Amino acid sequence: MAMTRIRVGLLPSTQLIAGTPPMPKMKDPEAGVVAVDRDTQETLYTLTVFLMEEGRAEQMKITLPESGLPKGLQPGTPVQVTDLFATPWARIFNGQLSEGVAYRAAKLELAGAAK
Score class of each variant (00 low, 15 high):
Ser67Arg: 14
Thr20Met: 05
Pro29Met: 05
Leu51Gly: 00
Gln80Val: 09
Leu44Gln: 08
Met23Leu: 13
Thr87Asp: 08
Ala35Ser: 13
Leu73Gly: 02
Ala111Met: 02
Pro21His: 15
Arg7Gln: 15
Val101Pro: 05
Pro24Gln: 08
Ala86Arg: 10
Pro22Asp: 04
Ala111Cys: 00
Val81Gly: 00
Lys27Leu: 14
Thr14Ile: 02
Leu44Ile: 01
Glu109Ala: 12
Leu97Phe: 07
Arg91Ile: 03
Leu44Ser: 05
Thr63Ala: 06
Thr43Tyr: 08
Val8Asn: 02
Arg38Met: 14
Gly95Asn: 10
Gly95Ser: 05
Val33Trp: 08
Ala2Asp: 11
Met26Ser: 06
Ala86Glu: 07
Ala35Thr: 07
Val49Gly: 00
Met60Val: 04
Ala105Ser: 01
Arg7Cys: 11
Glu99Arg: 09
Arg56Ile: 14
Ala2Gln: 14
Ala105Gly: 06
Gly55Asp: 11
Gln80Trp: 03
Lys61Leu: 08
Arg7His: 09
Glu30Trp: 11
Leu69Ser: 04
Asp37Asn: 11
Ala31Ile: 07
Val36Trp: 09
Leu51Met: 11
Ile17Phe: 09
Asp28Gln: 08
Gly9Asp: 15
Ala57Glu: 14
Thr63Pro: 03
Pro29Leu: 05
Ala105Ile: 03
Leu97Lys: 13
Val8Met: 05
Gly9Cys: 14
Val33Ser: 06
Phe93Asp: 01
Arg5Glu: 15
Gly9Asn: 15
Val34Ala: 06
Leu110Ser: 04
Leu97Arg: 11
Ala113His: 05
Leu69Phe: 06
Met26His: 08
Leu51Thr: 00
Pro70His: 04
Ser67His: 12
Tyr45Arg: 03
Gln96Glu: 13
Thr48Tyr: 09
Thr43Cys: 04
Thr46Pro: 00
Thr87Cys: 07
Gly100Trp: 07
Val101Tyr: 08
Pro12Tyr: 11
Lys27Ser: 14
Arg38Trp: 08
Phe85Thr: 01
Phe93Val: 00
